[in-house]
Each structure stands twice: as C-alpha cells, then as structure tokens.
Amino acid sequence: MGLRLLLVEDDGHTAGEVLRGMRERGHSVEHAEDVERAGALLETRPFDVIIVDRMLPDGDGLILIKRLRARENGTPALALTAMGRIADRVEGLKAGADDYLVKPFSLDELEARVEALARRVSAVRLVIGDLVLDRLTRTVHRGSTRIALMPREFQLLELLMASSPAVVTRTMLLERVWEFHFDPGTNLVEAHVSRLRSKIDRGGDPPLIHTVRGEGYVALAR
C-alpha cells in the first residue's frame, strides 16, 4: 500500500520530479510551496511522512517541523535541501527532522528513506481517517486538535484502532481493557464507548467508532 506524503517544495522542477516519481511508485502526494500552505494541509489530514525543503519563500522549512514537534505531532519529517554542510544537517536533526537528504538526489534513495521512516513509526502510530494515536507519547489527535483521554479510554481506543477493520467484541474489550474474564453484568463497556465517542466525534466530524449490532464495535472511517 502506498504512503500518504506531503511535499513542501517551492522549486517547480524538483517538485515535479518528486510528485511524478512518487506517484508512479504508488504513493499519494500532496504538494505545498511554502510553510503556510503546508501548515494548512497538516491541519486537515494526516500524512505518513513529510518531505520538507529548507529554503522556502516564507522561511526555513525547519519552522514547520519545529511547530509540529511543539504540538507533539510525531509525523516523520525528511529535510530535502541543498544545504549540505555538517552544521546544516545537525541543525536539521536538532530541530526535529528524522532524516536529511541533500540535493541532488535519486528518487530511488528518496523513496527508500521515506519508506524506512514510515516503517519506523508504524508500530507506534495508529491512524484512521484524521484520527492519530501515538503509542509512544500516549497522545491522540483528530486533525490538529489534541484529545485528552483517561487511561481506560486510551486503552479502549488503542484496541479498536489496532484491530481495525475487524470488529472487537464486548468480551474482548472486557478481557483486554479491564482484565475481566467474566461478564460483570453492567453497562461498563457501553458507558466507556459512549464517553469515548463524545470526545472523538465532536464538532460534526464523521463518526469513527461504530456499533455492529449483535457483534461489538469497530473503528473505521466510512
């Protein structure tokens, strides 16, 4: 399955080569020419990896990476730039970039690095629609909004997202989240799912947690 990439690059030739090459390789790529536009795109949808030029019309691309890290957004970022001195690389990595590739570059190497970054976070980052759960930082975001969850709510959401698109039964939730190996005969699960939905599906957002009558629950973007 292809990756969802955001390319932040103002040079038309470079952008065209990357867009064409990555799309031919099966990846979905959005393009922004400056920090402001990239920030707007990041507000509306999740990406697997961000590819960021440093010398942009409205500032250093590292500004974008720093803003993401300040909001505890751990989306992997690769700095793609002509600034190739050791000091430039160190600056980029300290700013929060996960990798640094100097121009000129080959598309094969770019794809290999991007895929390596995506693999690195796949075990700790769960994504459904615009909902992102980070197992490492224990944070949840829907779009750009951070959602505060209680520990049980986080466990419940984590199990639903990790199991998607499979349905998770009430029994499985009781065993995995509450460690109950019997049915307590209460609405414990239903009450927690209801509270979780009220936090996740606010403001008219499309619902992501669905009840499958007679079976259980599923986390799914429809």
Rank of each mutant, 00 (worst) to 15 (best):
P165Q: 07
R69Q: 02
R119K: 12
V212A: 06
L7D: 07
R89A: 11
E215R: 13
L107D: 05
G59H: 08
S106K: 02
E158W: 10
I200V: 12
L160N: 00
E158Y: 09
T81I: 04
D11E: 14
M150P: 04
T171F: 09
P57K: 13
V127C: 06
G61S: 01
V29T: 02
R135T: 11
I63V: 13
A40V: 11
S194L: 15
A15L: 05
M150T: 15
I51E: 09
A219F: 06
M55I: 14
V102A: 08
S198N: 15
T137E: 10
M1L: 11
E111F: 04
N187E: 14
L196T: 07
K94R: 15
R119N: 07
M150L: 15
A95K: 02
T81W: 05
K199N: 11
N187C: 10
D58H: 02
F105C: 07
L126K: 08
L42H: 01
V8E: 09
E190F: 13
R135M: 13
L5V: 08
A221G: 06
A123H: 14
E175P: 07
L19T: 07
G26V: 02
E215D: 11
H181Y: 13
E33W: 11
G96C: 03
A38N: 01
L80M: 10
L174D: 04
L133I: 07
R54G: 03
T171M: 12
R170M: 11
M172C: 13
G84N: 09
G96F: 00
A219S: 01
D10S: 08
Q155S: 15
R202M: 13
P151Y: 01
R125A: 01
F182S: 12
H27M: 05
A70L: 12
L173K: 03
L7T: 05
E17W: 12
F154P: 05
S194G: 10
V167Q: 09
P57H: 11
A162W: 00
G92P: 01
D34Y: 06
V127D: 06
A38Q: 01
E158K: 12
L196H: 09
V49S: 04
A162R: 12
Y217A: 00
H27I: 00
A95V: 02
T139F: 01
D99A: 15
A191D: 15
P184E: 06
E109P: 02
R202N: 09
E175C: 08
E24A: 14
L56S: 08
E158G: 05
